[in-house]
Design a protein around this nucleic acid. Sequence first.
DNA 1: CGGTCTGACTTGAAGCTTCAACTTCACGCT
DNA 2: AGCGTGAAGTTGAAGCTTCAAGTCAGACCG
Lengths: 161, 161
Amino acid sequence: MDAEQPRWLDERELDAWKVFSAVMLKLPAALDTQLHRDSGLNQFEYLVLAGLSESPDRTMRMSTLAILANGSLSRLSHVVKRLESRGYLRREPCADDGRYTNAVLTDAGWDKVVAAAPGHVETVRSQVIDALEPEQLDQLREIGLRILHAMDPGFGCTEGI
Amino acid sequence: MDAEQPRWLDERELDAWKVFSAVMLKLPAALDTQLHRDSGLNQFEYLVLAGLSESPDRTMRMSTLAILANGSLSRLSHVVKRLESRGYLRREPCADDGRYTNAVLTDAGWDKVVAAAPGHVETVRSQVIDALEPEQLDQLREIGLRILHAMDPGFGCTEGI
DNA sequence: CGGTCTGACTTGAAGCTTCAACTTCACGCT
DNA sequence: AGCGTGAAGTTGAAGCTTCAAGTCAGACCG
């Protein structure tokens, strides 16, 4: 578009990119497959339920939850509607400010996360964590932070919500 | 599922995983957004066209193309049908063996990739490559290879198709 | 007060992906 | 020839995501 003289990737860059890009495309699919097979959830739904389960009162505002689950508000709204119809959570308008909506994890939702978590963690461990040396974990974290920062320079300001 | 005593992630592991997981969920969306806005393609479609453009005779067998683009054959079939209807490629049965189908890039498809590539590369560069130190590129490659290998122990045998 | 603006959702339609059949073609066997 | 088998690819339906509007509540301003 605006690349007058595109700076193509050299061999080293291309090599790293190809590998990373394959991981990025395959790993989410692998995680989704395990979650779906064992719990009937996808990764986004799991993140939503897990996020709520770790929140005070098992309650979170929709927009906060959207950030936590790395998705758009629209996507969250659809997903929350599905999860609500399955009985895992319920929505209620925020008492203080009617513009906000809170999602609240039900007992059934809590049980669901508790049942799903071990298998999910085991998968993350076997596919990623245990495949790496401890120092590679730190490298990966540092690399990830840089990429997140490049994607969204304001990243970090809203981290600890 | 089969996790008798789940080995939860410690703080270091969790930290790395959270960051990496956020990248994995956000970066593909960012790349898709750029490609879609500037070229009307998504990442999978781009990989298909780019793969064909680099192949001898701009031709590739469907199943090979599916592996190259990191997707299922079914997904590829749907996508190729769309791309065919847009005139970017055409399908023809393999002359030697009627079980195979070859996808062939048309001139319009070639032009499309040539037009889309600079913007895409520029995005990859700005969001990933340029954000990292050279040695981080090598680290990322090594980490990625380990993860790919953990996901699919047979990985590497089919690489150079 | 009443108008307008903004931010927080919600919704419906369109598009994409997945899943589970189903079809087709070549190969090996009798 | 005739038959089973398996791999390659296709298809339709169901489910999920995105996009572009739309709704609604509080803030700001006169």
